[in-house]
Amino acid sequence: MTQPGTESWSEVPQGGTVLLPGSTERNLTGSWRTKLPIIDFDKCTHCMICWVMCPDSCFKTAEGTLQSVDLDHCKGCGICASECPVKCIEMVPEERD
């Protein structure tokens, strides 16, 4: 595949129609973050409130249980921590080099 942004005018898709469903996934919006959610899985009840409330679809689940947070995309908004009914998510400062 041609690297995005390098196609010539005759190569770009006609009419600007995007045929790459869900391709924003390649934008790693995790770099926006200043705070990071840490889940205490011992306390987590797998209620999935965080999953439904996250604006960036970051909570990964399997067969109805919470598995992990997608830190590549988490913007660190803190909604999950505010909304978790058992308060098992803590926002901690992001440390970057």
Binding site: P21, T24, E25, T29, W32, R33, D56, G76
Partner: peptide
């Protein structure tokens, strides 16, 4: 999908 540009 995630990776959209809406504000945090």
């Amino acid at each position: 999908e995630s990776g959209h540009g809406l504000c945090a």
